[in-house]
Every structure is written in structure tokens, then in C-alpha cells.
């Protein structure tokens, strides 16, 4: 990407107006770490949004609000009961990039290896997006697929996301496979489990990297709902339910290996989530 000019707005409305008037040639820069992946010959006007007031993590009773410009390293360092985004932040490529990359940048443009779309799709919650108007949407609606994502965000600005606090009887786990020591994952899997009366009340599983856009496995989830909170149920998972999906194996993996890896990791994250929900962690 070639930056032919830049502006540094200090208000959200000003930033959006720039983007609106520049159209296709506008490019928001938060941390700027994804510019490397934009077509080399694309000429853009950078709108540096790093001075907008969108920083920080605010704890509420049942949720956390995270400003879009909060860096991955600030998320990694945040330790508080029920805050779980730090688990994914720890797996994010390296310190120099964690220090500049923002969560807003990570979810505004979804690469196959992006960590947080997989995590957020699993946790669900809310996202505030501002163009000429502001709207607060459900994360699961925005991240349903690449089309809903594109339509919801367009060239508007993500202000914050709000995710639920993990409470007693709930568990979450995130697994990221990388072939080399880098950020580009070959398979990512996240799961969330909520228990009630020693049964699985809710379960969510999202897979990333092996698909173009992260995918929730609704049928597999439904097959586990209502089952007893017992680790043995994971031995009976019907993995044939995955057959209908078109996997994109990365890093030289065969399709067979890729599917095997995903199945193994699904079991791993479910076991970890259940352990946490049962208070065994």
C-alpha cells in the first residue's frame, strides 16, 4: 500500500467525514500493522485515528467495555476476575506488534489468522459502530459472515466492544496452532460453556483460520446442549457434522490432517471450558 497523504483527526465525526468524502481511497490507521497486507500498488490517504478518545477497558458488573484503540498488550496485561480476552492476547504474535496493534483494527478487517474475531464470535456481546449515526449491534449479528461484517462496518468507526464477564458456572478456552513461531495460525478454536443444574445449558464453538471467515458450529453445539456436565460426553461428539464445511488447510497441511487437528482442538477447548465451568481450574 502506498500512502499518498495523511490526516490526523481528533474527533470521531471528523474522522468519519474524511473517510466518507475520500471514499475508496480512505484508509483508517489505528496501529497500522495490517497495512503490510494491503495490495502494494493501492494508493491511499491515511486517516490516523490513533488520537481519537477510544482507549481503555472499563469493568462493569456483568461485562467489560473495551475501547477500539486499546492495544493487544494492554488487553494482555489486564487481570481481573471474569476477564478472558487476555488469554487470546497472550497468543498474539509478539511484544512489538502487541504494543501497536489495536483490538479495533483486529476486528475491523478480518484476516484468516485474526485472533479476536474467533474469540468475540464465541463470547458474543455488543459492538458500537459510528458513521453519520451510531449503532450498537450484537457481535454475533455483525460477525455472522463476511457479508454481514462488511455491511455493518463499511467505512464507519468501531468505538468499542462490550463482552460478558465470565461468571461462576461458565468456562472459556482458546487454542491457536502456529506452525512457526509467528502470528499466522493454521487453526484457531474457541469454546464457551455455561452450566445449569449440572447440565450444559449453553455451549458455543468457533473455528478460525481453516475457513475464510470464522465459523460457529451450531449443529455441533446443539448436539451438546442439555447433556450432563461430564467429560465423557466429548468422546461421543459426532464429528461427521463437520463434513459439510469446506476446510482450507494452511501451511502445507493435508485436508485430512487439518480436519484431524481441528477435531482434536475442539475436544481440547471443550475439556478446558468444562473444567473451568466446574470450578476445577
Amino acid at each position: 500500500m502506498k500512502i499518498k497523504d495523511f490526516v490526523i483527526p481528533t474527533k470521531i465525526s471528523e474522522a468519519y467525514e474524511f473517510a466518507h468524502s475520500l471514499g475508496q481511497s480512505a484508509y483508517y490507521i489505528a496501529g497500522g500493522t495490517s497495512a503490510y497486507f494491503v495490495q502494494a500498488n493501492a494508493e491511499k490517504v491515511a486517516i490516523d485515528i490513533s488520537k481519537l478518545p477510544l482507549f481503555g477497558i472499563t469493568a462493569k458488573r456483568d461485562s467489560f467495555r473495551i475501547g477500539a484503540l486499546t492495544t493487544i498488550s494492554d488487553i494482555m496485561k489486564k487481570e481481573e476476575d471474569g476477564f478472558i480476552l487476555n488469554r487470546a492476547a497472550k497468543k498474539f504474535v509478539n511484544q512489538q506488534i502487541r504494543n501497536i496493534s489495536t483490538i479495533g483494527g483486529n476486528i475491523a478487517r478480518v484476516f484468516y489468522w485474526s485472533d479476536f474475531p474467533v474469540v468475540l464470535k464465541t463470547l458474543d456481546g455488543k459492538i458500537k459502530i459510528t458513521g453519520f449515526d451510531s449503532k450498537i449491534l450484537k457481535i454475533s449479528d455483525v460477525f455472522h459472515n463476511s457479508t454481514t461484517h462488511k455491511e455493518a462496518i463499511g467505512n464507519a468507526i468501531i468505538e468499542y466492544i462490550e463482552i460478558p464477564r465470565l461468571l461462576k458456572n461458565m468456562g472459556f478456552s482458546y487454542s491457536k496452532e502456529t506452525r512457526i513461531s509467528s502470528g499466522f495460525s493454521s487453526a484457531t478454536v474457541a469454546s464457551f460453556i455455561e452450566l445449569k443444574d449440572n447440565k450444559i445449558k449453553d455451549v458455543r464453538i468457533t473455528i478460525g483460520s481453516v475457513f475464510i471467515f470464522p465459523m460457529r458450529l451450531f449443529e455441533l453445539e446443539n448436539s451438546l446442549k442439555g447433556e450432563p456436565a461430564d467429560f465423557s460426553i466429548f468422546n461421543k461428539i459426532n464429528f461427521n457434522l463437520l463434513d459439510k464445511y469446506k476446510f482450507n488447510p494452511r501451511d502445507g497441511m493435508s485436508l485430512e490432517y487439518c480436519k484431524h487437528l481441528v477435531k482434536t482442538r475442539i475436544k481440547d477447548v471443550l475439556v478446558e471450558s468444562l473444567k473451568e465451568a466446574l470450578g476445577e481450574k
Binding site: 497500522g32 503490510y36 511484544q95 512489538q96 504494543n99
Partner: peptide
Amino acid sequence: KAIASCLLY
């Protein structure tokens, strides 16, 4: 904060 100056404009 330590950052990669090759990525930053």
C-alpha cells in the same frame, strides 16, 4: 513501549 519501527509510518 517497544515497537517495530519498520511497520509504523
